[in-house]
Design a protein around this nucleic acid. Structure first.
Length: 595
RNA sequence: GCGCCCGUAGCUCAAUGGAUAGAGCAGCGGAUUUCUAAUCCGCUGGUUGUGGGUUCGAGUCCCGCCGGGCGUACCA
């Protein structure tokens, strides 16, 4: 058992004599946390202050009562009462050593599987296949993938589903463009590029018409686009044939990007998959009296807090009979419930769609999905350094691959410069350098996003993400490579060492601090999953790498005073390397042995 | 207008209602016959936009104000 659960277990027993209500006890246990400052010990229990009020006693007295009942001597040194009633706890070194020894031989590094696995559907990335992926897809893709991996590692049944946009208006744009502006030669050579050009062209025409006075007796391009979409949805043979022709090429394109990003999905059930389930959703809403016709559209209206009807409804069928993403999303919830009956569905989608999800979730509850946790895991916008949404100088959105290429190019420069500067001369071949640059560059891009609190906007900067200092993937990958190089230099048989039964020593404060952090890995994972914030994991890894380097400066490994100490420190190195590697793996970031 | 989100060090950002609000960058000062210095150690830097309230305790919760972003009926 890890530190925090162990502490909670002891406090649970101690509090049982003081409090009747089990729920109250569990609530109190949440107030046991890691100390912010080492001088207050390793962990602190803040339970006595609120309890003091409830029991009508001074908090310090309550704290003393709790300590009296606490059976913790094997785990901690004598608890101390401080300030208004904090209980400070310092874990015994013997206990840490015991846990570390267990972790050394454990593939999971001592991280337990959850006792009650839940089933999660994680809905992330969801690009429109009709247009190339761009900067706006990074966050959803990267955060969703990391959450999915972490949930799985903790023992949950997590299902990653890429709800790709393969059925909406954007296909109407392409169909219209194909029929009116196609460059056959270009299409034959690179269909995806030509379709992307057509999409942008039609999009521009539609947008331009909106700012100009449209000639009244002429149908707008937007209307023509919508008609192509409607024809596709109605089963028009030609549009259907074109759709089937376009789709595979578009999918190959996005899959190539996922390959580079090291992102995977369990399913990729796009909007078109739900095509024949949409009408039934609308019918059910009508039948149950949840939806009604308004201005020719079928709408679900919601009540606000005062019980008054909100002005803006959720439209599930348009005047022209076409369905919208609200309809698709409802059909998708139903399908997911029928197929996987999940406990939760997480939508990793940017914050601007907040109202859509508020409506969607309300509608889902009205349809009877009341025990299903529906979560909009929202995130902010990617900005450039002028504080405005990240665009090219001409105002266009930036293609995702251009970003990847530039990050990799810059990483390549850094890798080459470092290798050239090595005291023994360069040790990496040009091919190896290129492989490392790809891993470092893409890792930097992903980590920069994941290390940010997802709810806020963030400023995109190559310099920041590839910085060699600070909370970056580069720093973490470097720490990993440094640890691994010790094994290479020392000709260490790591596998043999793990089963050798060497006793780990924590005599030096830097050793102990590192050990403590290694054992906190599962805590960090639980925090990351608790409110779906991978930055909890990156913060942990940064702290771990920091403590490793402090250890590295203070505690010589290969030239340790005795062989036992050398073995002990090698084990700490091994645990550090494995924890960094596993942590980065859960973020979808790879490591290299040399850089 | 209404709704949602945000405002923390010069800059970029952390901080499940807990002790003296933390990092990185930038600035200043140290450490290298190196286990890869892409490192480490120290210093400087704050009325957490603002005014109230709740609480033993507020950056965090509630209300007002100021400033910013986003959304607001047939795109997603």
């Amino acid at each position: 058992m890890n530190i925090l659960p162990a502490l909670k277990s002891r406090f649970r027993s101690a509090l049982a004599g003081l409090l009747e209500d089990r729920a109250e006890i569990e609530k109190s246990l949440d107030l046991i946390r890691r100390s912010q400052d080492a001088k207050f010990g390793d962990y602190q229990a803040n339970v006595a202050m609120p309890l003091g009020k409830k029991l009508g006693k001074p908090p310090r007295e309550v704290a003393a009562n709790i300590i009296e009942r606490l059976d913790i001597a094997d785990l901690c040194q004598t608890p101390e009462i401080a300030g208004p009633g904090f209980i400070n706890l310092r874990v015994k070194d013997e206990w840490l050593v015991e846990r570390l020894t267990a972790a050394v031989r454990d593939d999971r590094l001592g991280v337990p599987q959850v006792e009650k696995p839940r089933t999660y559907v994680v809905d992330y990335s969801a690009p429109n296949v009709a247009k190339p992926m761009h900067v706006g897809h990074i966050r959803s893709t990267v955060i969703g993938d990391a959450l999915c991996r972490t949930l799985k590692f903790l023992g949950h049944n997590a299902i990653g589903d890429n709800h790709i946009g393969d059925w909406g208006t954007q296909f109407g744009m392409i169909l219209y463009g194909y029929k009116n502006f196609l460059d056959r030669e270009a299409y034959r050579e690179n269909p995806v590029e030509e379709l992307a050009r057509l999409y942008k062209l039609v999009r521009k025409i539609v947008d331009d018409e909106k700012t100009q006075a449209v000639v009244a007796d002429r149908e707008s391009t937007e209307a023509k686009v919508l008609r192509e979409t409607a024809k596709l949805h109605a089963g028009d043979a030609e549009n259907r044939r074109l759709w089937e022709e376009f789709l595979p090429a578009c999918e190959d394109e996005i899959n190539r990007v996922y390959g580079r990003l090291n992102v995977t999905f369990d399913h990729a059930l796009g909007e078109s998959f739900y095509e024949d389930r949409l009408a039934a959703v609308v019918e059910e809403l009508l039948k149950k009296g949840l939806a009604r016709e308004s201005d020719g559209a079928i709408c679900v209206f919601f009540k606000d807090e005062k019980g008054e009807e909100e002005k803006v409804p959720m439209i599930v069928r348009k005047q022209d009979g076409a369905f919208l993403y609200a309809t698709t999303d409802l059909a998708t919830i139903r399908y997911r419930m029928e197929t996987w009956s999940p406990d939760a569905i997480l939508y990793v989608v940017d914050h601007r769609q907040g109202m859509h999800f508020k409506h969607l979730f309300a509608a889902a509850r009205m349809l009877g999905y009341e025990n299903l946790e529906l979560e909009h895991v929202s995130f902010g916008t990617v900005l450039s350094d002028d504080g405005k949404p990240f665009k090219t100088r001409s105002g266009e959105t930036v293609g995702l691959e251009i970003l990847l290429d530039e990050a990799v190019r810059r990483a390549g420069e850094i890798v080459a410069a470092n290798d050239d500067a090595k005291s023994g001369g360069p040790e990496l071949s040009p091919e190896r350098r290129a492989e490392i640059a790809e891993i470092v560059g893409i890792g930097a891009l992903k980590y920069a996003d994941l290390s940010q609190n997802r709810t806020s906007d963030y400023v995109f900067s190559y310099d920041k993400m590839l910085a060699m200092n600070g909370n970056t993937a580069t720093y973490m990958q470097y720490a990993y490579a440094r640890v691994r190089s010790i094994f290479a230099k020392g000709n260490t048989d790591v596998e043999a060492m793990r089963v050798s039964g060497v006793k780990i020593s924590l005599a030096h404060p830097a050793e102990r601090a590192l050990a403590m952090e290694i054992l906190r890995f599962s805590e960090a994972l639980e925090l990351a999953v608790f409110d779906y914030r991978p930055n909890q994991l990156t913060s942990y890894l940064f702290e771990l790498a920091n403590r490793y380097f402090t250890f590295y400066e203070n505690c010589h490994v290969l030239n340790a005073e005795t062989d036992e100490l050398r073995q002990s420190r090698l084990l700490l190195c091994d645990l550090t390397a494995r924890t960094i590697r596993k942590g980065l793996e859960l973020l979808g970031i790879r490591v290299v042995e040399k850089m």
